[in-house]
Design a protein around this nucleic acid. Structure first.
Length: 605
RNA sequence: GGGGGCGUAGCUCAAUUGGUUAGAGCGCCGGCCUGUCACGCCGGAGGUUGCGAGUUCGAGCCUCGUCGCUCCCGCCA
């Protein structure tokens, strides 16, 4: 009870109403200002900072102790709250009007000099990752983790109140051929076999529906051994949901209600329901993306009709090959420099576009890189379709629809982001529906599932599954927030025959289907209810709510883009004995004979 | 797998055309200081310029390779 670090208050609590009270605080030394005849010490805990005050004349032994004290030492202090002199109040802080006149001070722990300034906003990220526990003491990370906690709790409450049951599914799972690369875990007791870490609890949650659970959810850790991005980590968390006896509308309504509750509780915001819905085709046509950011305009305009009879060779070639000519109109773009246009050209080339054409208008006249190839009618028609005005710029890509859309979609985002911050505190939810069911994979020479192989086709498209598979749409839906894919789901196939048909369309033979998905196929035979669900990226959601630039900022211990943990230095080599037990031998890499021969220690850094 | 950016003191950065002993601020160590709040002032220590080759009379700077961090393309059912 009376431990020396017992606290009566936290460090963001005391104000003028506490003056005269005897209090105890514990925390870290944020800074210590020894003025010689006066000593101030800012004590910090997770809630805030309180100034401690010591008068060396009155307490010489305390002053001597404080002389030793350094940044980030851990202290417990007891003293009396006193008002600061009027002019000395710090209005920046909740506790700025008072200070604690110290009576006893205990050093709970010393601290080595910090590897970086905790207050320094410019510290490199690898250093922050190596000393994540110090990074956490700074202002940004802990509030993000607390926000994430509130988010998770709010999700649990919202789903619980709607009859959902939280169920844990196995982490040691089964490898499946479709989808992302698996993280594998070797089996000790079954030599030569492997578990896979789940990319998602997809099959388990469907089996829970067959099991009659009806409403399932899980805050589920998922693992994918693919290359990283600012919004992609090798392990991440999904809000995983599955429901029985539901249509797409039922799932979307449930998710909307949950998201509205979360937005209210976590962000204090009311969002209008239902969320807007847009077909995948419309999203691609208007925004060049299957996750459009609808916070701003600058939509893609199809100017193909204006150029249907063009004799400009480049455009003619594209049109004759079945391509399209699309444009975005950039307000205030008329002044764009050559250098800027070159940079934009590089951007569209990333997506396979051969080039970027541009037009601009000044004093009613259209000029630009391709102006001389267009006749008067074509220019007028382009102006009519795009609304081009003086001082504005038109960026044009002529290519296959997919290339033109994606290139301009990216350009649209880049230009919007570079021409000033996008509206903050603004949350545009959007459903994108009617995704294609299948997509032709050039490399594999077969169709692949756009969502996953358990996704149900639209009823009206089923007939085309075997004749024209590329045109079949899915009972799938993505939820998009501010241009970020927050989650996606679908109504699943619950008919074993349909599931077999789907595997066939994917080029998965009956034998392989049985080997990889036999458990699911069999389960569908025993009275599987119609069911569907969704999975939402918890990390991305937290990132957006926190206004963070990367999901690393809302994950306590994230990994680098090479999937390494700089703090624990994982992955790492293991004891040969461990490998023996797992029946695993490390193959020597040909590329580096010295390292393979063990002449050079393998190091990372 | 590919492309861009970055790598110099504990941290953040500088260093002219390739030229003498690689500097500054903060931090660290020592001292001074009665109203500070990233206190201030004086003094001091601190460097394998990520690593390895090469070019050169001479490399932090140029070339090649390599490692790490990061952004993007591919990839991510």
């Amino acid at each position: 009870m009376s431990a020396k670090y017992h606290r009566t208050h936290h460090c963001n609590e005391l104000n003028r109403t506490h003056v005269g009270s005897r209090v105890s605080l514990s925390g870290w030394v944020n800074s210590c200002r020894d003025l010689g005849g006066l000593v101030f010490l800012d004590l910090r805990d997770r809630e805030g900072v309180t100034q401690l005050f010591v008068d060396p004349a009155a307490q010489p032994e305390l002053a001597r102790l404080l002389h030793e004290v350094r940044e980030e030492w851990v202290l417990a202090a007891t003293g009396t709250v006193q008002l600061r002199p009027e002019a000395m109040a710090n209005r920046q802080r909740a506790t700025g009007e008072i200070e604690v006149a110290v009576e006893t001070l205990t050093v709970l722990n010393r601290a080595a000099p910090m590897p970086f300034h905790l207050e320094d906003q410019a510290v490199s990220e690898d250093l922050r990752l190596k000393y994540r526990y110090l990074d956490m003491r700074r202002s940004a990370l802990v509030p993000n983790l607390r926000l994430r906690h509130r988010l998770t709790k709010s999700v649990r409450d919202a789903l619980d109140s709607r009859g959902f049951v939280e169920v844990e599914t196995p982490i040691l799972s089964k490898s499946t051929p479709e989808g992302a690369r698996d993280y594998l875990v070797p089996s000790r007791v079954h030599p030569g076999t492997f578990y896979a870490l789940p990319q998602a609890p997809q099959q388990y949650k469907q089996l829970l529906m067959v099991g009659g659970l009806e409403r399932y959810f899980q805050i589920a850790r998922c693992f994918r051994d693919e290359d990283l991005r600012a919004d992609r980590q090798p392990e991440f968390t999904q809000i995983d949901i599955e429901m029985s006896f539901v249509t797409r509308e039922d799932v979307m309504e449930t998710v909307e209600a949950m998201l509205a509750a979360v937005m209210r509780e976590v962000a204090g915001r009311e969002v209008a329901l239902p969320f807007p819905r847009m077909s995948w085709q419309e999203a691609m046509d208007r925004y060049g993306s299957d996750k459009p950011d609808t916070r701003f305009g600058m939509e893609l305009v199809d100017i193909t009709p204006a150029l249907a009879t063009t004799e400009f060779r480049v455009f003619r070639g594209v049109l004759d090959a079945g391509g399209v000519i699309k444009a975005i109109r950039v307000e205030n773009g008329g002044e764009a420099s050559r250098r800027q246009l070159d940079a934009w050209t590089d951007t569209v080339r990333l997506f396979g576009a051969k080039g970027l054409a541009w037009l601009k208008q000044a004093e009613g006249e259209i000029g630009g890189s391709i102006a001389k190839f267009l006749n008067h009618t074509e220019k007028a028609e382009i102006r009519r379709r795009t609304g081009l005005q003086d001082g504005e710029l038109l960026l044009i890509v002529a290519d296959r629809p997919r290339v033109a859309n994606e290139a301009l979609g990216r350009l649209r985002l880049d230009i919007a982001r570079s021409s000033g911050p996008l509206p903050t505190g603004c949350f545009h939810f959007l459903w994108v529906v009617d995704f294609p069911l299948l997509e032709y994979d050039e490399e594999a020479g077969r169709y692949a599932a756009v969502h996953h192989p358990f996704t149900s086709p639209l009823d009206e498209d089923v007939a085309r599954l075997e004749t024209e598979p590329g045109s079949v749409r899915a009972k799938a839906y993505d939820i998009v927030l501010n241009g970020v894919e927050l989650g996606g789901g679908s109504i699943r196939i619950h008919d074993p025959v349909m599931q077999q048909t789907m595997f066939q369309a994917l080029g998965i033979g009956a034998q392989e289907a049985q080997l990889r998905f036999g458990h699911l196929l069999e389960a569908l035979r025993y009275g599987a209810p119609p069911h569907g669900g969704i999975a939402l990226g918890l990390d991305r959601f937290a990132m957006l709510l926190a206004g963070a630039a990367s999901i690393r900022d809302v994950i306590a211990f994230p990994k680098t883009t090479k999937a390494a943990c700089l703090m624990t230095d994982s992955p790492s080599t293991v004891d040969p004995g461990q490998l023996d037990e797992l029946h695993i031998a490390i193959r020597r890499e040909e590329a580096d004979p010295e390292a393979a021969a063990g002449l050079v220690p393998v190091e990372r850094r």
